[in-house]
Design a protein around this nucleic acid. Structure first.
Length: 875
RNA sequence: GGGAGAUUAGCUCAGUUGGUUCAGAGCGCCUGCCUUACAAGCAGGAUGUCGGGGGUUCGAGUCCCUCAUUUCCCA
């Protein structure tokens, strides 16, 4: 059979993914084995795969595939998030292109469109994950708006309400005037912008011509001013105590109050207070009992309190009012100013602080066990440094605004029967609400009297239940699956959503299962481009993952993205990493090609092959220990690097070269069989990283019975190995490298056989001699008692090796080389002797260290003597 | 403004309790090879004031102080 020289991944990938699926290998049902569970961080239902997903899901797949091989019942639950704001924004935009306005639709009509959109675009991303090779249990695919899931979300809302943890309150919220919704603090991005600082003067009430000047970045909010505030310790304004000021344009009279909140240094030291439109001012207003004047409509235009500006947009008003203030002599001056402004993460609109009735979750008590169990290590963070950030946040946790003025999501299960602040009941359905409302009011309430809250719940209010609700752990708390799979094992996610999601899942875990939701959290980094920018669709700097897979193969891309991404570190992604990954798969492919082309003959096993097998067995076990340790510490990229080097350097460059028969020569059966066994072990340990090529070669290298697939193979068990063999190999390697150097420096082709003479100055193991002869392409290897004249020489330990000069020899170059080595050794000796001459060192250092230094001294003295002798021999 | 990190080779990063597994890895770079598994390859090679300064110690990438640069989170 002709095997192609280059590995062609696409066909193999399609074939094996279909095979695994048809065998139902990814599906898990509870059994007597230990469970290993990962729940996917659910991507937005209408999203497409980006590089961050690639990183994240590759890591999860590696963990799951390895767990499966370790004999665990591995279950990776996939699914999607309804992503209320993002999805609704997309649907609104799509409808707009069709000339439909959301405001013209009823809730039901809009949701119909939204579900159509979801059905059309939903799940694309899951199909893409299949291309990447993700071994998710697709039968368990969940969606945060699945009927049963939605029940859980509503149940939790009602439960927390009953516990007094959900409350309704007037709060300053982040209002997105474009999406017409309140946003959580986390959905607001603060950016520095160039703006202006306006100095505006207010007349002191009752005075002839006395003024005070304030500085503001938002002159349009003057119409909502309730007070002027000064710092009581500011001597400049002592005379203003107890007086009043007149607001320009509206001519309202407002008090001048004092509060230490005012920064004396900033602006003029006089602050205008607008409680309805600034968070800090709101707090001041509450403290000083100020009037709250809301001058904005929900869409960011001014209302009737804006007087003649009513109906104009806030930014238009800013320009117009500047002119009016100037014209009327109120504007003292303007200055350029840089300040931070909040923007909506979703719509990029400037956030308007707005007073509004919202639903909140009281977080302080809920956060306690979540903080404690991360700090005490019941839940581990990888890397650990994120514990600090987590602690800081949890210790200062603020209440969570969970209502969103949207339609796409879980409608808040609250029914109002009046306009009073307490005229509502909390119930799952209107049927359940009727008796509750009747009881609360003492009147007969009918469905017609009730109106459900228009808002939906924050997306995170559903995804915080993810590890529980994918197993229906709330609607059916004692079901077999939740008991078997929960707590889950590992969570792989981005540090950016530590608070949105991770912290809240931990909170929900303790609140609803009395237990942690997962044992380990692996934080991935952010995938960045070469310039250090975050890869994003809007910047257009992100490669299309599917195109990458088509070009480099899924295995190659998986490797490329993992090779330099330690936990918690950003991943500067470069296409060349995928090339490296592809090259690696090709390397394995060619190793297979070599092995598969040998012809077995009944011949004696060469001594060098016996040695090679003995060595690789030891080497494999030594490396396997390292790889296992890296996995246990969640150092995935280090595990990959160790695997990579074991295969490329140890297996291909050394082992295969050591046992390789000459051109068109046959191989003995023992060596071939050992090699195949090694190859199979290698396929097993790369299976988590590069599952497709592993499966492909697994089936090519040997006939397999139906169902014998590497994906289910047992992870190799570490066996005892002989460290002496490894030490012997290292010496041999040094000898070979020296021989190759002599060849290279003297232009001696590797085809030409050479002689090697060894003068033993200390006992040396000879068991690798057969390998030295083969790898060095020697005609003979001989031990001698005397130095050889007219020979290239090198030393390994204190033994001297000689290769006789051929026809041409550059004596001067050879001398220079020895001279350089001599100088270095002398320098080294001096540094060692300095230490030994230092009385303090000799007195203070432990015996072990001293011994080492003395040995160094003796060794270098001997080496110097040999080198000097060598040098004089050349003259 | 508050908090948490980071700074080691051209790039991306390892470096555990201070001491030969301490100055490392991969990529890149340089040199020579189309040697019948692989040029997506083979063999060899170079590269560092371990961000600056100070301190503790017989001994400091490693511990302490300080400055600088920088990233992220929160206001």
């Amino acid at each position: 059979m002709e095997i192609p020289k280059t590995y062609e991944p696409l066909q193999a990938e399609e074939k094996w993914y279909a095979h695994w699926m048809s065998k139902n290998y990814f599906h898990s049902v509870p059994d007597e084995r230990e469970a290993y569970t990962i729940v996917i961080p659910p991507p937005n239902v209408t999203g497409v795969l980006h590089m961050g997903h690639m990183l994240n899901n590759t890591i999860q797949d590696v963990l799951v595939r390895r767990a499966r091989m370790l004999g665990k019942n591995a279950c990776w639950v996939p699914g999607t998030d309804h992503a209320s704001i993002a999805t609704e924004a997309k649907v609104v935009q799509k409808l707009r292109t069709e000339g439909i306005k959301k405001s013209d639709l009823t809730r039901e009509e809009f949701l119909k469109h939204a579900f159509e959109w979801k059905d059309k675009h939903g799940g694309i991303i899951l199909e893409q994950l299949k291309k990447l090779g993700c071994s998710c249990d697709w039968e368990r695919t969940s969606f945060t708006m699945d009927p049963e899931y939605s029940q859980s979300v509503l149940d939790v809302f009602i439960d927390l309400y009953k516990k007094g943890k959900v409350y309704r309150s007037v709060r300053m919220v982040n209002w997105d005037p474009e999406a017409l919704t309140a946003l959580s603090d986390e959905e607001v991005l603060h950016k520095e912008v160039n703006s202006k600082l306006f100095y505006v003067r207010y007349k002191i009430a009752g005075s002839e011509d006395e003024w005070l000047t304030i500085a503001t970045t938002r002159p349009e909010t003057i119409l909502g001013d309730s007070a002027i505030c000064i710092n009581p310790t500011d001597p400049r304004f002592n005379h203003l105590h107890g007086k009043q000021a007149i607001v320009p344009i509206s001519n309202r009279v407002i008090p001048i109050i004092q509060d230490e909140y005012v920064d004396i240094e900033f602006g003029t030291g006089c602050l205008k207070v607008t409680p309805a439109h600034d968070t800090n001012d709101y707090e001041l207003g509450k403290k000083h009992n100020l009037e709250t004047l809301d001058i904005f409509n929900d869409n960011g235009t001014l209302n009737e309190l804006g007087l003649h500006y009513a109906g104009m947009d806030r930014f238009e008003v800013r320009k117009a009012i500047e002119k009016e203030l100037y014209d009327k002599g109120y504007l003292v001056k303007t200055e350029d100013h840089i300040n931070k402004v909040g923007f909506s993460e979703r719509t990029d609109a400037v956030i308007e602080p707005k007073l509004s009735l919202q639903w909140f979750v009281s977080m302080k008590d809920l956060a306690e066990p979540a903080l404690e169990n991360v700090m005490n290590g019941n839940i581990n963070f990888h890397p650990e440094k994120f514990k600090n950030t987590y602690r800081h946040w949890m210790e200062n946790v603020k209440d969570w605004c969970i209502s969103r003025q949207l339609w796409w999501g879980h409608q808040i299960p609250v029914f109002y029967y009046g306009t009073g602040s307490e005229d509502y009941v909390v119930a799952k359905t209107i049927e359940e609400a009727i008796p509750l409302a009747s009881a609360k009011t003492g009147k007969t309430i009918t469905a017609a009297d009730l109106k459900q809250d228009e808002d939906v719940l924050d997306t995170w209010f559903s995804s915080w239940l993810w590890p529980i609700s994918v197993f229906n752990g709330l609607t059916d708390p004692e079901n077999e699956e939740i008991n078997y799979y929960y707590p889950t094992n590992d969570l792989v996610t981005a540090p950016e959503i530590m608070f949105f999601w991770v912290a809240r899942m931990i909170i929900a875990g303790y609140e609803y299962k009395g237990e942690l939701p997962f044992k380990n959290v692996y934080y991935t980094g952010i995938v960045r481009d070469k310039l250090g920018r975050k890869m994003s669709k809007s910047l257009g700097n992100s490669p299309d993952p599917i195109e990458l897979i088509e070009k480099y193969g899924a295995d190659g891309v998986r490797m490329g993205i993992l090779i330099s991404s330690p936990a918690g570190n950003d991943l500067p992604f470069d296409i060349s990493q995928c090339e490296q990954g592809r090259n690696f798969t090709n390397k394995i492919w060619n190793a297979f090609r070599l092995v598969s082309n040998w012809e077995v003959r009944d011949i004696e096993q060469p001594a060098s092959s016996v040695k090679a097998i003995e060595w690789f067995e030891a080497k494999f076990n030594q490396q396997l220990i390292e790889i296992n340790e890296s996995f246990d510490k969640f150092r995935i990229s280090e595990a990959l690097m160790s695997t990579y080097k074991l295969i490329w350097d140890d297996f291909c460059s050394w082992y295969l070269e050591m046992i390789k028969p000459g051109y068109q020569q046959p191989i003995d059966a023992l060596t071939l069989e050992s090699t195949k066994v090694f190859f199979e072990k290698i396929l097993k340990i790369i299976q988590p990283f590069t599952p497709f090529i592993a499966e492909e070669i697994w089936h090519l290298i040997r006939e397999r019975e139906e169902g014998n697939d590497v994906i289910l193979a047992q992870w190799p068990v570490v066996e005892a190995y002989n460290p002496i063999v490894l030490a012997g190999f290292t010496k041999m390697e040094e000898v070979i490298t020296n021989i190759r150097n002599i060849r290279k420096q003297n232009n001696i082709a590797s085809k030409i056989k050479m002689d090697l003479f060894i003068k033993k100055n200390e006992e040396v193991a000879t068991d690798f001699d057969s390998v030295i002869i083969k790898m060095g392409n020697l005609s003979q290897l001989e031990y001698v008692n005397d130095k050889l004249q007219n020979a290239y020489s090198f030393m390994v330990n204190s033994n001297e090796y000689f290769v006789p000069f051929g026809d041409t020899i550059d004596l001067e170059a050879e001398k220079e080389k020895i001279q350089a080595e001599l100088e270095y050794t002398k320098g080294f000796l001096i540094s060692v002797m300095k230490k030994l001459d230092n009385e303090k060192f000799v007195a203070g250092a432990p015996e072990k260290v001293l011994e080492m230094e003395r040995k160094k001294e003796a060794d270098s003295l001997q080496k110097i003597a040999i080198l000097e002798e060598k040098l004089s021999g050349l003259n």
